[in-house]
Simulated assay, not measured.
Amino acid sequence: MIYELRVYHCAAGRLPALHQRFSHVTLPLWHKHGIEQAGFFTTVVGPSNQTLTYLLKWESLAEREAKWNAFATDPEWTAARAASEADGVIVERIDNSFLEPTAYSALR
């Protein structure tokens, strides 16, 4: 199992719009494409409270590439993303890492 750690750094005041997009658009589309999340988190204490951090679960990098590309090019997603950004950009920057659990990790 491989975990993908993604940190979305939102434009000022746009975190609520990102929550709205994930809960109403992104998650149903991920379900459609077989993308499985392991958790979503907001920052309570840290450099910024305008971030959304989440983990995705993948069997392999090949699975990730196939499913992510299908999602990213889905016309429903591209239209919904554009509509959600009609009032301005939501995410200014994304940090992305791929993680492999250790032998003693609770997540495997």
Rank of each mutant, 00 (worst) to 15 (best):
R21F: 15
R14K: 14
A83K: 06
R14M: 10
I35V: 11
R6S: 04
T43Y: 07
V25L: 07
L27N: 09
H33Q: 02
H19L: 06
G39C: 09
V45Q: 07
N69G: 12
R6V: 09
A72K: 10
F71I: 01
R21N: 12
T42V: 15
I2P: 03
E59M: 07
S60I: 12
A11K: 14
N49V: 11
E63I: 07
G34S: 12
Q50F: 08
T51G: 04
A83D: 05
K32D: 07
A72D: 14
W77I: 10
F98P: 01
Y8I: 08
G46N: 09
Y54A: 12
G39A: 10
S97F: 15
A103N: 08
L52K: 09
R6N: 11
V7W: 06
I94L: 06
A86G: 05
E85P: 03
W58S: 03
R64M: 13
H33I: 01
R64F: 02
L5E: 10
L61H: 10
D87T: 13
L29R: 02
A11C: 12
E36A: 12
P28N: 07
Y54Q: 04
R108C: 05
K32A: 13
F22Y: 11
Y104P: 00
H24Y: 08
P101A: 01
K32C: 05
P16G: 08
P16V: 03
R6G: 12
A66R: 15
L56P: 03
R6C: 03
E36D: 03
T42R: 09
T78Y: 03
L18S: 11
A62R: 14
M1S: 09
I94W: 03
E100I: 10
F98I: 15
W77H: 11
P75W: 05
P28K: 12
R108Y: 15
Q20A: 15
T51M: 14
H33V: 00
H31Y: 06
G39Y: 15
A12T: 12
W77R: 09
L99E: 01
T51W: 10
A38G: 13
N69Y: 08
H24D: 04
G46C: 11
A12L: 07
I90L: 00
E4I: 02
R21E: 05
P16W: 04
V7G: 04
T43P: 08
A66P: 08
W68D: 06
F40G: 01
N96P: 00
F22R: 06
C10V: 02
H9C: 09
R14N: 01
W68N: 09
E65Q: 13
S97I: 00
L15P: 11
D87Q: 14
E4F: 02
V89D: 13
P28E: 02
T78K: 11
V7R: 11
Y8K: 10
S105D: 15
Y3A: 04
A80L: 11
L107D: 05
L15T: 06
A79N: 11
I90E: 00
P75Q: 07
D87F: 03
A103H: 08
G34E: 09
V44Y: 08
R93Q: 06
Q20Y: 00
E4H: 01
R21W: 12
C10T: 05
A83E: 10
V25D: 14
V89N: 12
L55Q: 06
T42C: 10
Y54G: 08
F40N: 04
D74H: 09
S84Y: 15
